[in-house]
Amino acid sequence: TTYYDVLGVKPNATQEELKKAYRKLALKYHPDKNPNEGEKFKQISQAYEVLSDAKKRELYDKGGE
């Protein structure tokens, strides 16, 4: 599973699309609303952290993490 899959976006997604997808999923899986989905929330946050940063995203796209 790639970070793009976690957020449900395509690899060519814009920053705005990433932000929108992250917010939607973060609300859905937030531990306050969904106590059993803490791990999913962490995955979503990690994916967004990497993909929202241009340098980290470039490194990730080249095969790094």
Rank of each mutant, 00 (worst) to 15 (best):
Y4C: 01
N12V: 05
Y29D: 02
E16D: 12
L18D: 00
L27Y: 12
K40S: 06
L18P: 00
P31Q: 08
G38M: 15
T14E: 03
L59Y: 08
F41H: 04
G63S: 12
V9M: 04
E39K: 08
F41P: 01
Y29K: 01
V9W: 00
D53V: 04
A54G: 07
K10N: 10
E39N: 08
K19I: 13
G63P: 06
K10Q: 11
K28H: 08
S45Y: 12
L59H: 07
E58T: 06
N34K: 06
L25Q: 05
R57K: 06
K10G: 10
Y48S: 01
V6H: 05
S52I: 10
E37M: 14
Q15K: 08
Y22N: 00
N34H: 10
Y29L: 05
E37Y: 15
K62T: 08
P35G: 09
T1A: 13
K42W: 09
L59V: 10
L7P: 00
S52N: 06
D61L: 03
L27A: 14
H30E: 05
K24M: 14
N12M: 06
E39A: 11
Q43V: 11
K33H: 14
G63K: 10
P11Q: 09
Q43G: 05
N34D: 08
L7D: 00
R57S: 02
N12P: 02
S45D: 06
Y60D: 03
K20Y: 11
E65P: 12
A13T: 05
L25N: 02
H30N: 11
A26C: 14
E17I: 05
Y48W: 11
E17L: 05
A54K: 12
V9K: 01
Y4V: 01
E17N: 04
E58F: 10
D61P: 03
D32A: 12
Y3W: 08
G38V: 15
H30R: 10
D53N: 08
P31D: 06
A54D: 09
K42A: 12
Q43W: 10
V50N: 04
R23Y: 13
L51M: 02
A47W: 01
Q15A: 13
L7V: 01
L7S: 00
G8C: 07
E39F: 09
G8P: 00
G8H: 06
P31L: 06
V50I: 12
G63C: 15
E58R: 07
E49L: 11
K24A: 13
V9C: 08
E65Q: 12
K62R: 12
E16T: 09
